[in-house]
Amino acid sequence: DWREIAKLAEEALKKQQPVTVNGQTFNDPNEIKKLLETAQKAI
């Protein structure tokens, strides 16, 4: 669910920690931002 992904990505950016989505881990803040943008577009 994109809403859940957006929430996870936002928290990861705030806490500056990696986030795992669908078994894929994102460590890079730039990648997390991209993930968040993608999720927000999909909602």
Rank of each mutant, 00 (worst) to 15 (best):
Q24R: 09
V19A: 03
P29F: 13
N30C: 07
A12M: 03
T25Q: 08
V21A: 05
G23S: 05
A42T: 05
D1E: 11
Q17A: 09
V19T: 03
A12Y: 02
A39F: 03
E4S: 09
W2M: 04
V21M: 07
Q17S: 12
T25K: 10
V21H: 05
N30I: 12
V21I: 15
D28M: 05
T25A: 05
K34V: 12
K7P: 00
T38F: 13
K33T: 07
R3T: 14
K33G: 06
I32E: 01
G23M: 03
N30T: 12
T20N: 06
L36M: 07
I32N: 00
A12F: 02
A12R: 00
W2R: 00
E4C: 14
P18V: 05
K7Y: 12
N30A: 14
A42C: 12
E11I: 08
V19K: 00
K34Q: 11
Q24V: 15
Q40R: 11
F26H: 05
K14D: 06
L8K: 11
V19N: 00
A12D: 01
A6F: 12
T20S: 11
E11T: 07
D28I: 04
A6G: 04
T38M: 15
N27Q: 09
Q24F: 15
N27D: 13
Q17I: 14
E4N: 08
L8D: 04
T25M: 09
L13M: 07
A42Q: 14
P29A: 11
L13V: 05
P18Y: 06
E31P: 00
K7N: 09
L36F: 06
N22W: 10
T20E: 07
F26D: 00
Q16V: 08
Q17D: 06
V19Y: 05
A6P: 00
Q16E: 12
I5A: 02
K41P: 02
E37S: 06
K34Y: 10
A12W: 03
L8N: 08
Q24L: 12
Q24S: 06
I43Q: 06
D1V: 09
Q24E: 13
T20D: 04
E4F: 10
T25I: 09
K33R: 15
P18A: 13
E37Y: 06
K15G: 09
F26C: 04
N30Y: 13
P29E: 10
K7S: 10
Q40E: 11
E37T: 07
E37I: 10
P29R: 11
N27R: 13
D1N: 11
E11W: 07
E10P: 00
E10A: 07
K41H: 12
Q16C: 09
K7F: 12
W2S: 02
T38H: 10
T38G: 06
A9Y: 07
E37G: 03
K14H: 13
T25N: 06
N22Y: 07
A6C: 12
I32T: 01
L35K: 00
T38I: 12
K41D: 08
A39T: 03
W2I: 03
A42D: 04
N22E: 05
G23V: 01
